[in-house]
Amino acid sequence: MHTTRIKGLAIAALGVLFITPDALLVKITSVEPVVFLFWRGLLLALSFLIINTVRYRSRLVPEMKRCGWKGWFCACAFAVSTLGFVVGMKNTAAGNVLIILNTAPVIAALIAWLVWKETLPLRTWVIIVVCVTGASIMAIGEWGQGEPLGLVMAGVAATALAANLNVARSRPDADMSVMLMFGALLLAALAAIGGGAKLPSLRDSLFIGLLCLFFLPIAATLIQIGPRYIAAAEVSMMLLLETVIGAFLVWLVLDEVPTTLSLFGGVIVFSALLAHGWIEVRRYRRASLS
């Protein structure tokens, strides 16, 4: 049991590390959101197909069938969460979107409790509350007004993410990551309908290719696998680390100096997740000794 939890935390943390360049590479590109969404979806679908073919070879189709309707749900939820995030960012202040997205761990925990009767230990709830508070403090510096559509879509993104991870958690015997390619194709199709099927400049193509052919497919695969070993709320909580490291990369490369509140909130999130990992490692060592 303890070995499984350590494995799950390590997989989720590694996935978060691979997703951290997302904000930086999105900021570097100058394409319209709908064009970015089209190529993000198309290239991710190709990447997922390659990764899954290498992992499963002739067993890929049987593994997809094993996922059943829950696999299709995860694929659609993946597309909806990505779409909600981008539309939210386009229609309201970034701080508004981040604060709403930071509620994903709480939403995931509530869904798990209401639907699957899965409860979390008090220590995990404490870490979740501390992390959400720290991430929200980071976002307060960018709090602003915006269209109601942006707020609604940010809420949709947080709920879709939480639901996706919970459904994946409900079938630990099936690898839901093999279905993400269909969610990526759905995202590309929706963007194409919206006029996103345009060729970016060479510079933007290089950055989009780096993000969608390397960083994102590895990150999404690992994060989708995480709920097979730990609670969906814990995976969502680990994703808050991306806010901290992503902001640091933007600061380092683009010289966008974070506010004092952002730095303070980042320290809270990083310290809480570090404490969570330390506690789990200690529990694993005690269980091993006994």
Rank of each mutant, 00 (worst) to 15 (best):
I218K: 05
G194F: 03
W116N: 07
F85I: 10
V31M: 09
F48A: 08
I140S: 05
W125R: 07
I218E: 04
Y56H: 11
S262R: 12
W39E: 08
L44A: 07
A192L: 07
V106W: 00
M153P: 03
A197W: 09
C74V: 15
H2A: 12
F38Q: 06
P172W: 00
I128W: 00
K27P: 06
M237L: 14
G8N: 02
G146D: 08
K27M: 12
T119S: 14
E147M: 14
S170D: 11
E256C: 07
E142C: 06
P33C: 11
C131H: 04
D175G: 04
A184T: 01
L46F: 15
T133S: 14
V106Q: 00
V87W: 04
I100M: 02
A10Y: 05
V129H: 05
V129M: 12
L83K: 02
V156R: 05
L122G: 07
A184R: 00
R286E: 15
G144T: 09
P217D: 04
L161E: 10
F73W: 14
G15R: 01
K7P: 05
L120H: 07
G277P: 04
A79L: 06
S177P: 01
L25N: 03
I111L: 14
F18L: 09
S205E: 05
V26A: 14
V54I: 15
R228F: 03
F85P: 00
L60A: 01
E142V: 06
R283G: 08
G183Q: 00
A75V: 04
S201L: 07
L161R: 08
I225W: 00
A79C: 11
A158H: 02
I223H: 01
I223R: 01
P33Y: 11
V156Q: 04
L83S: 02
A154K: 03
R59Y: 06
A75Q: 02
Q224C: 11
S47T: 10
F18A: 06
A13R: 04
I111H: 01
N102H: 12
A94M: 14
A174I: 01
I225N: 01
R55G: 06
Y284P: 05
V35T: 15
G150W: 03
V54T: 09
C212E: 15
I223N: 03
